[in-house]
């Protein structure tokens, strides 16, 4: 069956419509942090790059839905988070994963020689946590979000952020230090 010859592509649209406060430059300013978060969350840089690129595309496509430009950082993080969660079930079944050892070795090289073993161990242990635990530790501990902001990014109540954070810290402590996990008492 002959495939009709496709028409030429329409001419490129010329940049964002004027008046839109969220443009490529505003988004680009957040990209290094988004990539850092994505790499720590995914455990490797190539998945992180895919995630961040999808996030940028989605943000540009939906930029007019963002009313308050000061919330751009959190908005981008929540887009990234949703893409990550929806992508997980696909990735789990796809080809070989990039081993977390790559990231562990890479990050160890950025550390002082005396700290390299510790950095490597930390990356390995961190990678053993669940996605939920990694996300909450990164948002509060690395990105400096408040409980409220982290709850908005993750789309869960503040109380859930607090209980996840408590469990994640205790789990990571046991992974790093050994010993047995403290039954974290009911949080409220």
């Amino acid at each position: 069956m002959p495939l009709p010859k496709p028409p030429p592509d329409p001419p490129p649209a010329n940049g964002p419509p004027t008046g839109s406060p969220v443009d490529e430059r505003a988004i680009a300013a957040h990209v290094p942090r988004l990539r850092r978060y994505a790499a720590a969350l995914a455990g490797n840089l190539s998945d992180a790059d895919d995630l961040v690129q999808d996030c940028i595309e989605k943000a540009l496509a939906n930029r007019h839905t963002l009313r308050d430009v000061t919330r751009l950082g959190g908005w981008l993080l929540s887009i990234l988070h949703n893409l990550h969660v929806s992508g997980l079930r696909w990735r789990r079944r796809r080809g070989p994963e990039v081993p977390v050892e790559d990231l562990a070795n890479d990050l160890a090289l950025s550390a002082a020689p005396a700290d390299r073993a510790e950095v490597r161990d930390f990356v390995r242990a961190f990678n053993q946590l669940t996605e939920e635990h990694r996300a909450v530790l990164l948002l509060t501990g690395l990105e400096g979000l408040s409980y409220r902001e982290a709850a908005d990014v993750l789309g869960v109540p503040v109380g859930t952020v607090m209980s996840r954070l408590a469990r994640a810290r205790e789990r990571l402590r046991v992974l790093l230090d050994g010993g047995t996990e403290q039954a974290v008492r009911r949080i409220k």
């Binding site: 850092r36 690129q53 950025s110 550390a111 690395l142």
Partner: peptide
């Protein structure tokens, strides 16, 4: 956590992530 992952923010970006 900050010491380990923090430096990632200074990595050069791949071309696809630069406007």
């Amino acid at each position: 956590l900050q010491e380990t992952f923090g430096p990632l923010v200074d990595r050069p970006l791949p071309a696809a992530l630069v406007p």
